[in-house]
Write a protein that binds this DNA or RNA. Structure first.
Lengths: 124, 124
DNA sequence: TTGCTCCTCACGTCACGTGAGGTGGC
DNA sequence: TTGCTCCTCACGTCACGTGAGGTGGC
């Protein structure tokens, strides 16, 4: 692993605005194991790890499962190495789903506005 | 209850785009009991019930708990009857939280766009 | 009588939250 | 040596999903 500059879990949590528990859970399910461990067993994350975490963080609000996100990380990694048709197909499907779910998020903002309006009416 | 025109759970689910299980669960926890039951035990919802369901549906994407939404329904009902200072205060707090969380949703849309961009880069 | 719709348990799932009890490292 | 940060269980939580087995009503 890249030992040039590693971070403990606390710093990663602060930088990514994620809980320690989430980061540990993501390791438990194989989504995002840290690149290394210290002598005493502390998780050590590299900048590359943080990049992956931030990718997952952006994907999360779309409601994909941890398993789906794990697959995306794998496919992105595979495509960085060589052209993998299967990975390409899966990623294209994820991109399409992203568009569908993005639209859903936008509708949720609209619903939030409607809710806000209704509450304001009651308070008026 | 208003028997003028009642609906069974299936029709309500279809109209509100909610699952039967959600509607049943919302009754279980006291959030939204239907106004009545048929002889045979079928849940009977009124138009007023559906109104309440739609209010909850708009509020849901903001991530409030079922308990918080139950309180909101109670407070809205209370204010419809008479002026209740405590209900007013709680609703104002919900309105403020709504603004905070709406902003969070908007940021999530932005994150979705960033994610979409990153995936597109890998596919290019 | 036949379907389709509904009913009540009740266990399962997903993504963590929340202590409890213990140790690492500047 | 003192704190602060980290560790591993392991049970709890929230909002349902998902059958299983049975009944209602046009």
């Amino acid at each position: 692993m890249d030992v040039a500059r590693t971070m403990q879990i606390g710093e990663v949590a602060a930088r990514t605005e994620l809980s320690l528990r989430s980061l540990r859970h993501w390791e438990e399910v194989g989504l995002l194991p840290p690149s290394g461990r210290s002598e005493g067993g502390f998780r050590l994350y590299t900048e590359a790890d943080v990049e992956r975490i931030l990718l997952v963080r952006r994907m999360k609000p779309l409601g994909f499962s941890l398993e789906e996100m794990r697959q995306v990380l794998d496919d992105v990694t595979a495509l960085a190495v060589a052209d993998d048709p299967a990975a390409r197909t899966r990623l294209r499907r994820i991109r399409d789903e992203t568009d569908v779910r993005r639209a859903r998020l936008v509708r949720q903002v609209e619903m939030a506005d409607e809710f806000r309006g209704l509450v304001d009416d009651r308070l008026a």
